[in-house]
Design a protein around this nucleic acid. Structure first.
Lengths: 294, 294
DNA sequence: AGCATTCTCTGACTTTAGTCAGACAAATCA
DNA sequence: TGATTTGTCTGACTAAAGTCAGAGAATGCT
C-alpha cells in the first residue's frame, strides 16, 4: 500500500499526462494558450474581471498581462473600462464576439471531459465522479488559507452575518443577534482576541473568533463553516487554529458554549478533547458549556 | 448533483490551480521547465532512456529534444551513448551529478505532495489517497489504447504468455499451452480473426483474440487482463471491442469457453448478455460455454 | 495638502518553446 | 544490393512567455 504522498504523486503524474496535456492542446487551438486562459478566466467572472484579480489568479506579470489584454482587445474579444469604485483599476468584460469565443472554449473543455468519461460504463462514471468530488473537497480543504482579519471589516462582518443567519435558522426559538456584531468587533481583536477567516479562492469558507474572559481564560465564539464546506474537516482545523491563537495570546484555557441543536458541533468538541462544564455565562441560547486546557 | 463531466471539469480546475501550478514552479527552480522534465524522465527510466521514447513520452519535436539533451549534456548531467542493439538510436543516462539533481527534483516533488497532505488529519489523508487511487485507476482505464496487433509480434507473444501463465497458476490441474501460441499466431488474424492489445504507457494492460469457427460464428480466445488493472472494467471494454471486431469481420455470433475457476470472467459474460450453451468444442480445460448473437 | 502606495501601462529586453527543412548514418525491406 | 525507412542531429527561424524599470494617474493616510 502506497502512502498518501506517493499516491498523490502518482495521481498527479497520470492526471497531468492525460488530462492536463489534452487540456492545453484543446484550449489553445488557433490562439496561443495565454490569451485563451485569460479569455476563459474573464468569461468565468460574472460582471467582468478586475485586472488586478486576473493577475493574482493567473499569476502573471503586470506587463505581460497588460499586453495580453491589449491583444484580446484588438481582436475585439474584450472591452476594458475603468472601475467605477476605483478609477485606478480597469475592468475587462467580454464583447459579444468574446463571449462566442468563450463558449467555444467551454464546449471544447466539455468535449475533453466527455472523452475521459465516455469510455466508462455508467457505474464507473459515477464512481469516478464521486472519487473526484471527494478528492476535490479534501484538496480544497487542505489549501484554504486561514488568517486573522479585522472583525469590523466588510469580509469579517459578512462572515459574522452568515453565522447569525444560520443560528437563527437552526434554533427553534430563532436568534436575535442584537448588537452582537458591534460588540464582537470590539472584543474579537488584539491584544487579547482575534478573528480568523478561512478563505478559498476569495470566498469565505469558515470563520471563528477568540475573546478574553480574564484569568487566562479565552472564549471561542462565532465559529461557523459554510454549507459548501461541511464534511471536509474544516471545522476541526479552524478549532485548532483558534486554540493555537488563544495560546499565542497568552491564554491557558479555552471555553465555549453551544446550543443543543448543533449536534455536529458538539460531537466535534468532544472529539477535540473538550470536556463539559457547568454554565459559565448567561447566554440565553446556550445549552452546553465546554472547556479545554491548552 | 453535478454530472460526471461537470465534476471532472471542476476537479481539473481546482487541481491544476493548486497542484499543477505548484508543481511547475517547484520542478523548474533554477532550470527552466523543459530540461527539468526531461531530466526527471530520464532519471525515472531504469537503464537509461532511448531518445526516441523520450520524444514520444514528452511529446517533443526531435530538434527541440536534441537541443535540450545537448544542454543537459554540457551541464554534465546526462551522458549519451549509442544503443548497442540499434546504432541509430542513442541512449541517455544520468551522470552522478545528474542523479543528484534528479534526487533534488524528487525531493521537491515529494515536498509539494506533503504540503497538500499535511494539513489533513490522518483519516482525511487516507480518504484522499483512496479517492485519488480510485480516480487514477478509472482515468487510466478510460484512456488505454486498444488496437489490433500481430499475434506473432513480440508484444503479442508476451501478452499471450502472461495469459497462459495465469491460467496455469489458477487451474488446479495446471495448464499445458503446448503449441497453442503458434496456432494462435495463425488463427487470430485477418481476414477472419484479430488480436487486440490494450496498452497504457507502453505497457500491456489486457489482450484478447477473435478467431473464425465457420458459419458466421466467431470465437473469443485468450482474453486476459493484467493484475494491475483488475477492477477497472477493462475486461468489459475489451470484450465489447472484441465483439465489435467480430461484427466488423462479418461474424454474426460469438462463442467462448472458460474454466469454472475463473469466476469473475463468468460473471462478466453473464453481465455482458452471454447465455450458456452446450459444449461446442473438445477443449479439455473448458467447463462452461457461452454464446451471444451480435 | 502632501507623501507614500496602488494600479495599469509602455518600452526594451532575454529566455523558452516550438517549427521546418535537410543532412547523414544505420537498419530494414524487396 | 539498392531503395526506403528510421532515428538523430544542426541550422535557421518564429512565436510565446516572462522580466524589469519606470511613467503617470488615482487613492489612502496623517
Amino acid at each position: 500500500m502506497l502512502s498518501a504522498v506517493e499516491t498523490l504523486r502518482h495521481f498527479n503524474r497520470a492526471w497531468s499526462q492525460r488530462v492536463g496535456v489534452l487540456d492545453e492542446s484543446f484550449l489553445g487551438s488557433g490562439r496561443p494558450l495565454g490569451p485563451s486562459r485569460l479569455l476563459f478566466e474573464i468569461g468565468s467572472t460574472p460582471g467582468g474581471a478586475v485586472v488586478r484579480d486576473l493577475r493574482d489568479r493567473l499569476g502573471l506579470d503586470s506587463g505581460h498581462l497588460s499586453r495580453l489584454l491589449r491583444r484580446l482587445e484588438s481582436e475585439g474579444l474584450v472591452a476594458m473600462e475603468p472601475d467605477p469604485h476605483d478609477a485606478r483599476r480597469r475592468v475587462a468584460t467580454l464583447t459579444p464576439d468574446g463571449r462566442a469565443t468563450w463558449s467555444e472554449l467551454e464546449d471544447r473543455s466539455d468535449e475533453l471531459a466527455r472523452q475521459i468519461v465516455e469510455p466508462l460504463t455508467e457505474r464507473q462514471g459515477t464512481r469516478l465522479a464521486e472519487a473526484l468530488a471527494t478528492a476535490e473537497l479534501l484538496v480544497r480543504a487542505a489549501t484554504v488559507d486561514i488568517s486573522p482579519v479585522d472583525p469590523a471589516s466588510p469580509e469579517g462582518q459578512s462572515a459574522m452575518a452568515s453565522y447569525f443567519a444560520e443560528i437563527d435558522r437552526r434554533l427553534e426559538s430563532g436568534f436575535d443577534a442584537g448588537d452582537a456584531s458591534a460588540s464582537d468587533a470590539a472584543t474579537l481583536r488584539a491584544p487579547y482576541g482575534v478573528f480568523l477567516l478561512a478563505r478559498s479562492e476569495g470566498r469565505t469558507a469558515a470563520c471563528g473568533g477568540v475573546r478574553d474572559l480574564g484569568d487566562g481564560i479565552a472564549e471561542i465564539k462565532r465559529m461557523w463553516v459554510s454549507e459548501d464546506w461541511r464534511g471536509a474537516g474544516l471545522g476541526g482545523r479552524m478549532l485548532r487554529e483558534l486554540e493555537a491563537s488563544a495560546r499565542d495570546l497568552g491564554h491557558t484555557t479555552v471555553r465555549l458554549d453551544t446550543n443543543g441543536t448543533l449536534v455536529e458541533a458538539i460531537a466535534m468538541y468532544d472529539r477535540a478533547g473538550y470536556s463539559r462544564i457547568e454554565r459559565y455565562n448567561d447566554n440565553p441560547y446556550a445549552q452546553a458549556w465546554f472547556e479545554k486546557r491548552l
